[in-house]
Structures are given as C-alpha cells and as structure tokens.
Design a protein around this nucleic acid. Structure first.
Length: 835
RNA sequence: GCCGGUGUGGUGGAAUGGUAGACACAGGAGACUUAAAAUCUCCCGGUAGCAAUACCGUACCGGUUCGAGUCCGGUCACCGGCACCA
C-alpha cells in the first residue's frame, strides 16, 4: 500500500474541520485537562521550524489525555501587537491591522496543515477590540487599586532616529537599526507595581510544578535579600541611611558613597566646598548611557564631597563621603557604606582614592584584594564586641545591636523593579485614561471600553519621542469623564507583554462580551494544567502573567493563586552554520574562518537567520515529506529541553519509519487480539511510550515505537498488534493513524476515530520476558553474559555463569570470595588467587 | 564576576550506580532490478588479531564503590541568563 501522505493529510484535515473532534466542552462531567503553549507572534516571515517543537509536544500530551477520557482544552491564539509589525507597516505603508490580519491568516493555514488538535472556535487575537477591551479593563482595575502609577523614567533614546527603543533594540549601546548612539532620556511613564507582589511571586513558587531552572531564574530575577538599613549621622545635619546585607562588617567602613542622582546632593549644595567638581561629575554621569556606565572592568571614578562627613554609629569616627556612579540610585537607598576589606568594588574604589582598608573578617589578605568569605564560618577581627564570633553569629548579633541602639532597621530588598508599562508607539492597546487639568488622571468609564485605536496617517513616532497618537488632535482632545471639562487622552500605548498576561483566561470563555471571563468557565477550566514555553520568557511574560493572575485572585475573579500548575520548557532549533570550521579541510581555511567569524566559526549549529541562509521553512518540509513526518522528526530530533540542530538528512529517517508503519497493513495476520509472539514487546512499548510522553521524552518514546516496528518486521504481527500500534502512534502522527485505523476496519467496528479510542493499557506482569540475559562480571569486569529464566536466584545464575569458558578462564586458579547479585541484571564474582 | 546548564562514535542522540553507544542519520556489503531510486537483510567506537579474544574508551585530574557516563572534590571548554544589586 502506498503512503500518499499528501492526500491522507488533506482528507483528515477536512474531516476534522467538519466534525470538530477537538472542541472543548465547558462544564462536561469528564475530568478536564488544560494544555497550553505560548501563543505565537504572527510575523511576516510565517511559522519557523522552532514553533512546531513545543506545539507538537503539548499536542501529543493533549491527544493522549483525550484518549484517556479527559475533556481537553488545547487552544491557540495570536499575540499580535508589537514592533516588528509596526515597522513593517511603516516601511511598506500598509496599516498594521492589515499586516496582522494577513499574517494571522498565514499562520492559521500553516498550523492547520500541521494537524494540531486546537479548538479553532476559541482563537484569541490580542489586537481584536473585543479582546483588548478586557486588557484595558484589567488595567483600569489595577489603576483603581493603586497598582498603576505615573513616574519619570529614563528610556533608551536613539540620538540618530530620534526614537525611543525597547531594551531588545539596543545592541551593545547602539541602535539596532541605524547603529546610532543610544542615551538615556527622562520620560514620564506609567508603571505597574509588580514589586508589591515580589514576596508572593517567590514564595508561591514552592507549590508549583515548574522545572527547577525556571524557579531559580525567577528567584534570582526578583533577587530578594535580607539586610539592614543603617543610619549614619553627618555634618550636614541630615542623617544618611545605607542598605547593607553585611552590617557585621560595619567596623570596616572607611568611607561612604552617594549615587550621582541622589537628591541630598542638591540639598547640600551650599555645604559642599567643591560643588563645581561634584556638579560636573553628576552631569558627566547623566550623559553616560547605561551601557557605558555598566561597562565591564571599568575603573572606578568619583569625587570627594569636601566639607561633608559622616560619623560612625558605634565609634563616632568621622568618615569621608564621595559621589560615584558605581552606586545606583535604583537599588537600596542610593547610598553605600564602603567596606573595602570585604567588597571587591569598594576595594577598587578605596585603592584608587587612597582610603584605609581594614580587615574585619579574618582569612584573606586585604592588601591584595577584598576578602569575601565563601562560607559563614570565618571569624571576626578588629570589630569590638564581635571579635571572635563567626560571621554566622556576628550578622544577627550586629543586627540586634543596631536595632537596639536606634540606628538600624531590618530591611528586605529586591532587584526586581516596577514594570514600565508604556510605549511611545502606535501598535499597542490604548491606555484608557484621560488627563484633566482640574481632576488629574481620570479613568474612562467601563461603558466607554474598548477605547479603540484610531486610524492615523503615519505610524512613525514623533521627533520628540511621543507616540504617533499624540499627533491625532481630534482623538487626543476629549472631555473629562469626571467634570466634563476639556481634557487630553493618554497617547502612549501598552507594551506587547500586556495582552499575553491573561490570554490563557480568555481561552476559557472567548466569546463573552459581558465580562472578561465567566465564573463558571474559570472554575471549570482553571488553572492551566500544563504550560510549555521558552526560557526567554521566564523573567518577563511568565512573571508578568503570574503577577496579573495574583491581582485577579485578590479581586476574587479567579479561584487559584497561580495561573499555571506546571511549566516545562523546550530548547531552540538551530540551523547549520555555513561558516563552521568543520566544513573545510585545510588548516589555513579554518584559520581564515576563525579570523573572519570569530567564535561563531567554532559552532556546528547556530540560530537560524536569513543572513546565514540556514532558515528551514516548515512549508517546504511538509510539502516534501508531509506534516506527520515533520511532527515526528521534530520530536525525535533530541532531548526536548536542549537545543537541537535541524538536519535535512535526518528527516528522511522519520519518513522511512512512517513508510514502514504504513506497509505493516499488508503484513497482518487475521489473528484478533495481541499475538503471543509480540505480547511482552507490546506491553513494554505501551509502558515506555506512556511514561515517556508524560516526561516529554518524545525522542525515546519514538525510539521504542521504532523498535516495536522492527520486531513486527522480523516476527510478523496480528491485526490486534496493529490496533495497539496505531493508537500509540495516533498522538504523534494523527493523519496517518486515522487512515490506517480506517483502512483496517477498526473505525467501522468501533464507530470511533483512532484519536477517540481508548489509550492502550499495559499489564506490568506481561512486560516481562520468560528469559533474561544477565551480565557476568569477574572483579567488576564484564566477562560475558548468560541467558537464564527470569527471576532466577543467585545460585542458579552463578552455576550458569561458571560454565562459560570466558568466566572459567578469568577465574582459573582463583577462589570466589564474594558474589554481588542483582536480580535479572548481573552477577559479579569477586575472586582472589587461591592459596 | 555571579547564577543555571552541557561535554558520550563520522553525526543527532540512548543509558533508576549494574552489559556504554538503544533508536536514527551518514557510510560499507549483499539481495531484488537491464539499471538507478525505493525496498529488504547484514556490518558499523579505537588498537592488535584470520578468528576466538585481549586491552583501551563517556572533556581532564583525583576520590567513594564489588561496580561510576551517572555520586563527591577539583580543573578546563562551550551554551544560556544576569551583571557595579552594596
């Protein structure tokens, strides 16, 4: 029988379109399963071969769940607001909405061609006013609860394009598009107070089934630290507070540093004798880009504040004060106590400015470098009453002391910053707030939502960095919802992360025009049971959406504290590196490649990109081999969590396997039920495939299926054997499985498609063979194998082992002093020369 | 620098502390064919040997163990993230 994948795939896709076997039913009595993949950004380039990796994996899990009797929700949508579309629109003079519509149509075509079991009646598009109405609505709830606030923040500003850039658009301090200088520019921005949720975002991770590296990365990103706010008196009359995690080292303080942006400096203008030098330093610092300022191995700079000094809270000693840009205004208090003996940055600063370096923790040589103890068992010295204590004892002791003496306070700090929630761009959700000269910021009434994105002539940002919407005076000028007087709309839009914060909720109830989500649907479907996505979204999307969900939980709008019960992650698909040194033979050619491309030339596989010409288009693969082969190969390519290199050659192996499966139809015996010859193999395979799918080890699940098919080729198979194989294949290659199921008459007999049939179950007792091959070792070295009855005892195996010539030879003249026996696995004979 | 991850044949990759290299790609041999493709069968880490077999082999050095790719300590390389976070 000829495997005509093209006709088969078209046939079944048309049938699914018609009968909708993937429809999720809210309220159904079956147990529910909600599988989720990160919805794609519909770029003009179309689907990338990287997309099918996570999509296929969760499709397989969802299909298995359906066969196990679950009511499955496996939805798809489009995260369609964003810069690439806007830039494409500017360049080609097409409205972003039209670009988006076309791109979505193309993505939809490609996704349907891959045979995913999405519920196509629940598609969500973040740029659809029916959707972003509720994105705006949730934002207003945050505004009303005081979580959205306006503040002045520096943005990345390209001096050449005169445009604000997202962080992703800044490459090594230069504009990604024109290579122009990027500096910081102060701009008024809406912020979301995610830091208010910092503790819960860390602590609630414990209850979640997320892979460890996601948890670790989120924890590090939030960066909670426990320390002390210590207050120092100064000669200015103002007290200065510093944050430190190591208040135990306070006897080692030899200077203090204030951040250039610190407002106290302005206040002290009259008291600072060298104000001109300080002012000049501050100006220079403000002109530096973040990149310059944070540049690696940069030499410490700073200016002493002449005429100003601080006083040590315990000794009362005078401490010189400096301004330096190595202290950040955005973390802690913007002032730092310098402990050069035990902090490398402080050590560099003190060395440069000739400040004393005191050792207060023993164990290093502070004349050479700062000593930062690896564990907390190092001992305190030169530290008054702390002397002789370990660091572990000294930290709480000094904290208590500081609190008791009124100059210290326990403090928790976070690296996490509040979320800059505005973009000076067109293609985003409009912010539903109005600025009234009398009433200030006023939210639109709910009945005014959605606040539609108006049509503009040009999507180019304005010269001064305002959003293109600012030029729309008709739209901008409005009336205040509160007092009715003239007022202006907010012209900035939301960032592309906004719509993706809650899309998984909308899937539960996508057509609701009364509320963002009905209680009934939320209680039935929530939370997401399994969410797979890229590691690159761990600290942005994943954290942001957890934050929004917690906010909605606090309002009583969702019944779970967390949106996603389980989170897994996939590795990237790489392409062949055309500049790889392994592609050339001579040493000169290799050196030439390294000289030209640097470290890139040493990698066999690299990220796919147009410029390298190594991009693989899924359309081409499907055309040449079929969607089922594409699905199978992308799962077989390697460990799901690791990066993997696409290989056109290796795809053929997957196609060959499907041909072999299809040809089994001509080989079956009429025997119903599972054949005796294949009994153990089939039960083993069911077990292996079932457990591997749960762990996303699709590569080994497929290997097990290949092994089974190879056995069928050598031993033959029954109709019943094939029935099991088809059902095991069904989640991986749904089109071919349905075709075979129908061909074999199983569909007619059961009245069900393969995908609706029960997932095969295995019987543990039938997974064991009658005989096993065991390893025989002598002194831990392999000296052959023996075939014995399964579960044979030590004596029987030992007897069988000693019959082998190899074992005889290895034990000649020796006596067995000990035997290690692992049932059905191995026997290890420990021998010594006989006396 | 810090955090996380990874190092296994020509290649992609398998191996709850228990026969390293499953499964596949590439390569080789054969069958079928006028021929090629496809298909089917077999071989395929290195060294020595006709072979049986022996020795070596999971980045490197050391340790624990009857037994280590796997566990522990150290080193190196690469990948990802963060980066003056006090």
């Amino acid at each position: 029988m000829y495997y005509d994948f093209s006709a088969i795939e078209k046939k079944w896709q048309a049938r699914w379109e018609e009968t909708k076997p993937y429809a999720a039913v809210t309220g159904d009595p079956r147990p529910k399963f909600y599988g989720l993949i990160e919805f794609p950004y519909p770029s003009a380039a179309g689907l990338h071969v990287g997309h099918p990796r996570p999509f296929t994996a969760i499709d397989i899990v969802s299909r298995k769940r359906r066969m196990e009797g679950y009511n499955v929700l496996f939805p798809i949508g489009y995260d369609a607001f964003g810069l690439p579309t806007e830039n494409f629109a500017i360049k080609n003079h097409i409205h972003p909405a039209i670009v988006t519509r076309d791109n979505i149509a193309n993505f939809t075509r490609q996704l349907k061609m891959l045979g995913y079991g999405f519920d196509w009646d629940r598609v969500v598009d973040t740029t659809d006013p029916k959707y972003y109405k509720w994105t705006q609505w949730i934002f207003l709830q945050m505004y009303k609860k005081g979580l959205a606030y306006k503040t002045t923040m520096p943005i990345n500003w390209c001096t050449s394009c005169k445009v604000g850039l997202a962080n992703e658009e800044v490459v090594e301090g230069k504009c990604e598009r024109c290579g122009g200088e990027v500096v910081r520019k102060e701009k008024s921005q809406w912020m979301l107070a995610i830091t208010k949720y910092a503790d819960r975002l860390i602590d609630d991770l414990d209850e979640l089934d997320y892979i460890d590296r996601v948890k670790v990365q989120q924890k590090n990103w939030i960066g909670r630290s426990y320390g002390t706010d210590a207050t120092f008196k100064t000669s200015t009359g103002d007290d200065v507070t510093v944050y430190t995690t190591r208040v135990d080292t306070i006897f080692g303080v030899s200077y203090m540093v204030v951040s250039p942006e610190h407002p106290l400096l302005d206040k002290w203008q009259d008291k600072i004798a060298n104000w001109d030098a300080v002012a000049e330093y501050r100006l220079a610092a403000s002109r530096k880009s973040d990149f310059e300022r944070g540049e690696l191995n940069k030499e410490k700079t700073g200016v002493r504040l002449e005429g100003v000094e601080a006083y040590h809270p315990i000794t009362g000693d005078a401490i010189p004060m400096f301004v330096s840009d190595y202290v950040l205004m955005g973390y802690g208090t913007g002032v730092v106590m310098g402990v050069p003996g035990h902090d490398q940055r402080d050590w560099e600063f003190a060395t440069k400015f000739g400040l004393p370096i005191r050792e207060v923790v023993a164990g290093g040589d502070v004349t050479k470098e700062a000593f930062v103890a690896k564990d907390d068992s190092a001992v305190m010295v030169n530290s008054g009453f702390l002397n002789g204590m370990t660091v572990k004892e000294a930290i709480p002791a000094m904290r208590q002391y500081a609190v008791a003496h009124g100059w210290g306070k326990e403090k928790v700090n976070y690296k996490l910053r509040d979320w800059v929630f505005t973009r000076q761009r067109y293609w985003g959700e409009p912010i539903p707030l109005v600025n009234c000269p009398k009433c200030g910021w006023v939210p639109l009434d709910e009945s005014e939502l959605p606040l539609l994105l108006p049509n503009v002539e040009s999507y180019e940002p304005t010269d001064d960095g305002e959003s293109p919407l600012a030029k729309m005076t008709d739209w901008v000028n409005t009336t205040c919802p509160h007092c009715g007087g003239p007022a202006k709309r907010e012209t900035d839009t939301m960032p592309n992360w906004a719509g993706s914060c809650w899309y998984y909720l909308r899937y539960m109830d996508p057509h609701n025009d009364k509320e963002f989500l009905s209680r009934e649907a939320e209680e039935y479907w929530g939370p997401v049971d399994w969410y797979n996505g890229g590691m690159e979204h761990t600290t942005l999307h994943l954290l942001y959406s957890r934050f929004w969900h917690k906010f909605l939980y606090d309002l009583g709008l969702v019944h779970t504290k967390e949106p996603y019960a389980k989170r897994t992650s996939h590795g990237m698909i790489l392409g062949k590196n055309p500049h790889y040194i392994g592609n050339v033979d001579t040493e000169e050619e290799k050196q030439a490649l390294i000289a030209k491309y640097g470290s890139m030339a040493t990698r066999p596989a690299v990220k796919m990109s147009k410029s390298l010409g190594n991009v693989v288009n899924p359309d081409d693969v499907i055309k040449a081999y079929g969607a089922d082969t594409m699905r199978l190969y992308i799962m077989f390519i390697g460990d799901f969590e690791k990066t993997a290199a696409w290989s056109d050659e290796a795809v053929k192996g997957s196609k060959r396997f499907l041909d072999r499966c299809f040809n089994l139809q001509d080989m079956v015996s009429e025997e119903e039920g599972i054949s005796k010859a294949n009994m153990a193999s089939i039960h083993k395979t069911i077990k292996k495939v079932s457990t591997d799918i749960e762990e996303l080890k699709m590569n080994t699940a497929i290997a097990a299926l290949m092994t089974l098919v190879n056995e069928f080729y050598s031993k033959g198979l029954s109709r019943g054997d094939l029935s099991v194989l088809i059902r095991l294949l069904s989640p991986f290659v749904p089109h071919m499985a349905e075709e075979m199921w129908e061909n074999m008459g199983f569909a007619k007999e059961s009245g069900k498609m393969a995908m609706q049939s029960p997932w095969p179950e295995y019987d543990e007792s039938k997974t064991v063979d009658a005989q096993v091959e065991m390893a025989v070792q002598v002194n831990g070295k392999l000296r052959g194998t023996v075939v014995v009855d399964t579960d044979s005892d030590e004596a029987a195996v030992k007897a069988a082992a000693l019959e082998s010539d190899r074992v005889k030879k290895a034990t000649e003249g020796m006596s067995v002093v000990k035997t290690i026996f692992v049932k059905n696995k191995l026997i290890n004979l420990i021998v010594k020369p006989a006396k």
